[in-house]
Measured scan of single mutants.
Amino acid sequence: EPREEEAEKYIKRANGDYDKAQELAKKDGNEEIAEAIKEYKKR
């Protein structure tokens, strides 16, 4: 799923820090991806 791939990219950029990844996504205006990262975190 493209959303998950995007989320993974942010998580990698944030060195595995989900909260930081979420912030990066929000900064880029990717609210949807920020949500996907939140879902990811719950797994």
Score class of each variant (00 low, 15 high):
Gln22Arg: 08
Asn30Gly: 03
Ala14Asp: 00
Glu6Pro: 06
Arg3Asp: 12
Lys20Met: 12
Ala36Trp: 15
Ala25Pro: 01
Ala34Arg: 04
Lys9Met: 12
Asp19Gln: 07
Tyr40Leu: 15
Glu39Cys: 11
Glu4Pro: 06
Glu4Thr: 10
Gly16Pro: 00
Glu6Phe: 06
Glu5Arg: 13
Glu31Ala: 11
Ile37Leu: 05
Asn30Glu: 08
Glu4Gly: 08
Ile11Trp: 03
Tyr40His: 07
Tyr18His: 04
Asn30Val: 05
Lys12Pro: 02
Arg3Ala: 12
Lys9Gln: 11
Lys41Gln: 14
Lys38Gln: 10
Ala36His: 07
Gln22Lys: 05
Arg43Val: 08
Asp28Gly: 03
Asp17Met: 02
Glu32Thr: 09
Leu24Arg: 04
Arg13Pro: 02
Ile37Arg: 01
Ala14Tyr: 02
Ala21Ser: 01
Leu24Asp: 05
Lys9Cys: 14
Arg43Pro: 04
Lys27Arg: 12
Asp17Lys: 02
Ala14Gln: 02
Glu31Met: 13
Ile37Lys: 00
Tyr40Trp: 09
Lys38Arg: 13
Lys41Leu: 07
Asp28Ile: 02
Tyr18Arg: 03
Ala25Gly: 01
Lys38Tyr: 09
Lys42Asn: 12
Glu4Trp: 15
Asn30Ser: 06
Asp19Val: 07
Lys42Val: 09
Gly29Lys: 05
Glu35Arg: 11
Ala21Glu: 00
Ile33Trp: 03
Tyr10Ala: 02
Tyr18Trp: 07
Ala7Glu: 04
Lys20Asp: 04
Glu8Ser: 06
Glu32Arg: 12
Glu5Asp: 12
Ile33Thr: 07
Ala14Val: 04
Lys38Trp: 10
Lys27Phe: 11
Arg3Ser: 12
Asn30Thr: 03
Ala25Gln: 00
Asn30Pro: 00
Gln22Tyr: 15
Glu6Ser: 10
Arg13Trp: 13
Lys20Tyr: 13
Tyr18Asn: 02
Tyr40Gly: 02
Lys12Arg: 12
Arg13Gln: 10
Ala25Lys: 01
Ala14Ser: 04
Leu24Lys: 03
Ala21Tyr: 00
Glu1Cys: 14
Ala34Leu: 10
Ala21Asn: 00
Lys42Met: 11
Arg3Gly: 12
Gly16His: 05
Lys38Ala: 13
Arg3Asn: 13
Ile37Val: 04
Lys42Tyr: 11
Asp28Gln: 03
Glu39Tyr: 08
Lys26Gln: 10
Glu23Ile: 08
Ala7Pro: 04
Glu6Gln: 12
Ala34Gly: 05
Ala21Val: 01
Ala7Trp: 12
Ala7Asp: 02
Glu31Thr: 11
Ala14Cys: 14
Gln22Asp: 03
Ala36Asp: 05
Lys20His: 07
Glu1Tyr: 14
Glu8Val: 13
Ile11Arg: 02
Pro2Ile: 13
Arg43Gly: 05
Glu8Trp: 15
Asp28His: 04
Lys38Cys: 05
Lys12Trp: 11
Gly29Thr: 02
Tyr18Cys: 05
Glu6Arg: 06
Ile11Ser: 01
Glu35Tyr: 08
Lys42Asp: 08
Gln22Cys: 12
Lys12Asn: 09
Ile37Thr: 01
Ala21Asp: 00
Glu6Leu: 14
Pro2Arg: 14
Gly29Pro: 00
Glu39Ala: 11
Arg43Tyr: 09
Ala36Ile: 15
Glu31Arg: 07
Glu6Asp: 09
Asp28Val: 03
Glu32Gly: 09
Arg43Gln: 09
Ile11Ala: 01
Asn15Phe: 10
Glu1Gly: 14
Glu35Asn: 10
Tyr40Ile: 15
Ala36Cys: 10
Pro2Gly: 14
Glu32Asn: 08
Ile11Asn: 02
Glu35Ile: 09
Glu8Tyr: 14
Glu23Tyr: 09
Glu5Pro: 08
Lys9Gly: 10
Lys27Pro: 01
